[in-house]
Design a protein around this nucleic acid. Structure first.
Lengths: 243, 243
DNA sequence: ACAAAAGTGTTCGGAATACACCCATGA
DNA sequence: TCATGGGTGTATTCCGAACACTTTTGT
């Protein structure tokens, strides 16, 4: 077992998207502690995270943490910010918790976010009581994790406008409206369906399949897939100055 | 004197722009060490950086480091990435250096970049033998600082397209061509002067002054200033999806 | 037949792109 | 007067923005 670095951790904001409820979700784990007298000391949620080991990179550390929580590897991952305020772990509940675990009061955390397909995660069986929460109605959060999630969301907003990472959150086969709904969820805006649809269909890397939705109770929609290969082939950086 | 955290540092990529040579520069400090036998052990350059103190935020830490190097505060600053590979400090020279200083072999550094006006820095008098180097011809660099500078540059490229941070690098009074040259330096592209000029002049926050260049040996150019106030008033986020 | 969501076309205006010459100034 | 960089105008094309009704399907 490698040694933990006591004052450096990674925290992972795991984003998933529920196409049914059209909700952008975050995967959180339960933090619960009772005193000997059965008094509830800590009862809230936190991001999944852990100390960095002596011999691993930060990226590997985040990957390991995600794997432990979800069993998944090879998900889209981004290191977006380090959080290290001296008082970031100093609420009363956090102190109780830190006392129980064994980590430094002055821990710097390197925060990552992951994008994955909700259906790839089996929430029911994992030892952390992990649960999806809509980004728009998060539960009470420990440490500075609310702030971390907010900043992850901000970064995601920017990033999804410039790179095709949106498809990391969708099933392999999706409808145009799925994509639109997801953009609307992430960005918190409304998009004109006709313009959006035209725009997307004109992209060569959005490929219509010989398939339609099944099991829907209304007119089934055309399914599409995203081709990363074609995207990469066609990609050329543009330097549009938008100030 | 507050305690240093032995395994956490900040490193600062200080960008400056020389309007005369049209060169985007980075401020580096000398790293030099001889053995008792006067053999040169280490002779290269590094970014300015230092340990984080126990009681300060990461941002404060970076601000402190910049102030010590340049005397400046209130410069544009961005935390852009943490670097923490286990082997990031393990070249031969780095080991010699680390032996001399006293920091952990497994140090994570939180990297910032700063944008400032070259002429605000008095390079001649500072104890670090600081020197400006064109980004395009950097000297030999210690640690993983070459990589850090490259990633800072990448982030700057993206950021300057979306936010008016370019003006942090220019004197208060500048010409349109100064701005264009700077964009070209940062992005490594050529821009059509007529189109660029029109675009900029049409911005309400680019304000023509009743002044022209003086001391130039050719036709003196019109000077402009950037109004952050007007920019902020006019700003509204747009959600253009460019994938 | 009806409810629900899928899907479709056109017009307008603003901005990016491409492109070449004259002008003002100091030396 | 000349060399240097400053400054200017137009035509074209493309894309985003606005906008409302018809179609298809399952129930």
């Amino acid at each position: 077992m490698p040694n933990k670095i006591s004052n450096i951790s990674v925290d992972c904001v795991v984003f998933g998207y529920d196409t049914i409820t059209k909700s952008l979700n975050v995967l959180l784990i339960k933090r619960y502690l009772e005193s000997k007298e059965k008094e509830v000391l800590v009862d809230d949620y936190v991001l999944t995270g852990y100390h960095v080991y002596e011999d691993e990179t930060l990226d590997d550390s985040a990957t390991r943490v995600l794997k432990e929580l979800t069993g998944l590897t090879n998900q889209y991952k981004k290191q977006f910010k380090a959080f290290g305020d001296p008082d970031r772990l100093l609420s009363e509940k956090d102190l109780i918790w830190i006392d129980k675990e064994a980590f430094s009061l002055r821990t710097i955390t390197i925060a990552y976010y992951f994008l994955l397909k909700t259906e790839d995660v089996d929430v029911t069986r994992n030892k952390y009581q992990a649960k999806w929460f809509p980004l728009r109605s998060l539960p009470e959060l420990g440490f500075d994790h609310k702030k971390i999630i907010e900043e992850a969301h901000e970064d995601l907003k920017t990033k999804c406008l410039a790179e095709p990472i949106i498809f990391e959150l969708l099933p392999d086969k999706f409808t145009i409206n799925d994509v639109q709904d997801l953009y609307e969820s992430i960005l918190g805006i409304e998009i004109d369906n006709r313009n959006f649809r035209r725009k997307l269909i004109n992209k060569k890397y959005i490929i219509p399949l010989d398939e339609k939705q099944v099991g829907v109770s209304k007119k089934p929609a055309q399914l599409y897939m995203f081709s990363k290969d074609i995207y990469k082939k066609m990609y050329h950086k543009n330097y549009l100055i938008s100030i």
